[in-house]
């Protein structure tokens, strides 16, 4: 089951990512990204992170990407042009990304034995549920980041309002 989930949704995620790369209309790219995110949500679930799976769907797919789609629609963005810049970018981008990938996968493969393997659901320490444990950690040892995130959000709201508000 684990391997089936991994293969199906892993492939789906990669396909979605590639589609994001090759689609020329932003809205198609956005939808491809939604596909990636949903697949990742399933993978999270398979790795025992149910809460994250749900959060992934709600926050990423359900809020952030909707915002993207919204802005694309609002600005009526069209297809992107093939420009000289994009040619340069192709020449620089593909090898760069490929190199990154090669490096990363080389490391992962060479450490493969040490990294071990997964089992569906995965168990954390013997807590009742994933959420209980997350919230416990969140409100004890990682309390400060949690609190400070409020400043972050405040800043984001402030910024969004300042920047997007139309001047009279």
């Amino acid at each position: 089951m684990q391997i089936a989930l991994f293969i199906i949704f892993g492939l789906l995620a990669v396909a979605g990512a590639l589609n994001l790369l090759f689609q020329r209309h932003p809205i198609n790219s956005a939808l491809s990204l939604v596909v990636v995110m949903m697949s990742l949500a399933v993978l999270y679930w398979s790795l025992g992170a149910e809460f994250l799976a749900a959060a992934q769907v709600i926050v990423y797919a359900g809020a952030i990407m909707v915002l993207f789609v919204f802005v694309v629609m609002l600005l009526n963005a069209g297809e992107e042009d093939r420009t000289h810049g994009s040619k340069i970018a192709y020449i620089a981008g593909i090898p760069g990304a490929a190199a990154t990938f090669c490096l990363l996968s080389f490391v992962f493969l060479s450490e493969r034995k040490q990294l071990g393997s997964t089992e569906i659901g995965g168990y954390l320490t013997n807590a009742v549920s994933n959420i209980t444990e997350i919230s416990h950690t969140l409100f004890t040892s990682l309390l400060l980041p949690f609190e400070v995130t409020s400043i972050l959000i405040l800043v984001a709201i402030l910024g969004a309002v300042v920047l997007a508000r139309k001047e009279l």
Binding site: L142, P145, V148, T149, I151, L152, V155, G159, L163
Partner: peptide
Amino acid sequence: VELLMVFIGLEISSISTYI
């Protein structure tokens, strides 16, 4: 001394400077 905290701090500072 916790990278999560560093990350949050970094983001607060970055986002405000973006704006």
